[in-house]
């Protein structure tokens, strides 16, 4: 679903992974591509926007938000990688989007609608201003 909307980042040819080393190489390749690998230059990373697209998010209108987000980024010439993700667990605040600007801390916004999308793009992403509606995310995962 929605694959027609996404910036698809499938590595174009899926070759079978035949050894554990192949798997490690693939991971390195993916990291490099996402600019997170050892040699990846952080300044060249682009903005990432994730939209919570689990049942809870979609039920609250996340599909519409994602579509609008992609249109508005294009319209306002913001070079961002918009992708879908699952449920962050803060279902009460859906639809939710996470904005990662290289060099800044990720921000999660809740109760997002089209108006909020515009505000986030224009004020937060473009002008770097504070935008209301941030959801404080606080959990440890296995890597921190």
């Amino acid at each position: 679903m929605l694959s027609e909307l996404k910036n698809n980042h499938h590595l174009s040819i899926m070759t079978k992974i035949k050894t554990l080393t192949d798997l490690k190489h693939l991971k390195d390749k993916i990291q490099l591509k996402n600019g997170l690998g050892k040699s990846g230059d952080k300044s060249e990373q682009i903005i990432q926007i994730k939209v919570g697209m689990a049942t809870c998010g979609i039920a609250s209108g996340a599909k519409e938000v994602m579509k609008y987000l992609i249109e508005e980024c294009e319209h306002l010439a913001v070079d961002a990688n918009v992708k879908q993700t699952g449920c962050l667990g803060y279902c009460y605040a859906e639809p939710m989007i996470e904005v990662l600007i290289p060099g800044s801390k990720p921000k999660v916004f809740g109760y997002v609608n089209n108006k909020k999308v515009r505000e986030i793009i224009e004020n937060y992403i473009i002008k770097g201003e504070q935008v209301e509606g941030e959801i404080p995310i606080s959990f440890k995962t296995i890597n921190n």
């Binding site: 996402n34 992708k83 879908q84 993700t85």
Partner: peptide, 14 residues
């Protein structure tokens, strides 16, 4: 959950 794209195996491998 909520961090990777569940429809992209590469996200999981990463």
């Amino acid at each position: 959950c909520g961090l990777i794209d569940p429809e992209q195996i590469e996200d999981y491998i990463e």
